[in-house]
Simulated scan of single mutants.
Amino acid sequence: MADKRRFELFARFLVDRFDARRVFDVAGGQGKLNEALSALGREVTTFDLRHKRLPVRYAERIFGLEEPCECDLVVGMHPDGATRVIIEYAAKHRLPFAVVPCCSDNGMPYNPWRRHLAGLATELGFPVVEEVDLPMDGRGRVVLGSFEPPRG
C-alpha cells in the first residue's frame, strides 16, 4: 500500500535539496505533488493525461523532449513510463532532476531499473548522480542528478 505522505515527503525533500522556483512535475497523476510543492511556494506545472485532477496548473498532454524549457527542476513521483524522458529532458536542458521510480517501462525489475536510471544520468553527462531514501513506506528511493553539488 502506498504511503499517503509520499507527496509531502518528496516535496519537502525537493525544496530542501534544490534551489528551484519553477518545477515540471511529469506524469503527475491528479497533481498531488504539484499541490504539495505549491504549498511550499513553488510554481509547478503537472503534465499528465488525467481528466480528473486537483485544481492545480496542469498541462493535459504527454511530456516530451520538445517541451519548451520553462522550469528550473524536472521531477516525477512514480512516473512509470515517463521516468527516462525526465532524465533525458533534464540532460538536454542542463537542469537537475529527481525521480522516485516505481516500475520500468521495459519490464526490468526494480533494483536493476534504478541502477539503469543512475547509469543513464551519468552517461548523459550529469556530474552528480545520487540515490537517497525518503522516510516512507513503499518505493521511496529518489534517483537524482544535478550539474552542481548539493546545497548545505
Rank of each mutant, 00 (worst) to 15 (best):
K52T: 09
V56G: 02
D72G: 11
V56Y: 02
D72M: 13
V56W: 02
C69D: 13
Y58C: 03
D48F: 01
V44Y: 01
A59V: 13
G41F: 06
D72E: 15
E66P: 02
H51W: 08
R53V: 08
P68S: 09
L49H: 05
T45I: 10
D48Q: 05
V44C: 03
R61P: 05
D72L: 13
V44T: 07
I62E: 14
K52S: 10
F63K: 02
T45K: 01
V56H: 01
R57V: 12
P68D: 06
R50C: 06
T46R: 00
C69A: 14
R42D: 03
G64R: 08
P55I: 10
L49G: 08
V44G: 00
G64V: 08
D48L: 03
D48C: 04
V56L: 07
F47G: 00
V56Q: 03
R50I: 09
L49I: 12
G64T: 15
G64D: 15
V44I: 09
E43D: 09
E70Q: 12
R53E: 07
F63E: 02
V44P: 00
C71T: 08
E66H: 12
R53A: 11
R53W: 10
L49E: 06
R57Q: 15
K52N: 10
E67I: 02
H51A: 09
I62T: 13
G41A: 07
Y58F: 14
E60W: 09
K52A: 11
D48M: 04
K52C: 03
D72K: 11
V44L: 02
F47Q: 00
G64C: 12
C71S: 11
R42C: 05
R50G: 04
E43V: 04
H51D: 12
L54N: 00
E60A: 14
P68W: 08
D72R: 11
T46E: 03
C69N: 13
D48V: 03
D72T: 12
G41H: 05
E60Y: 10
R50V: 11
V56D: 02
R53H: 14
Y58E: 05
G64P: 03
E43K: 02
T46H: 02
T46I: 05
E70H: 11
C71A: 15
G41N: 05
E67M: 05
C69Q: 12
R61D: 14
R61T: 14
E70K: 08
E43Y: 02
E60L: 11
R57Y: 06
L65F: 08
R53S: 10
T46F: 01
R61Q: 15
T45W: 00
C71D: 03
C69K: 09
E70G: 07
E60V: 11
P55G: 08
G41M: 07
T46C: 03
F63G: 02
E60M: 14
T45L: 04
D48K: 01
I62W: 10
T45P: 00
R61V: 11
H51S: 09
I62V: 15
D48I: 02
E60N: 13
V56F: 01
R53P: 01
P68L: 08
C69G: 06
E70W: 09
A59D: 13
K52G: 04
L54S: 01
G64L: 06
E66V: 06
R50P: 00
E67T: 14
L65Q: 11
Y58T: 04
E67F: 03
Y58W: 08
Y58S: 05
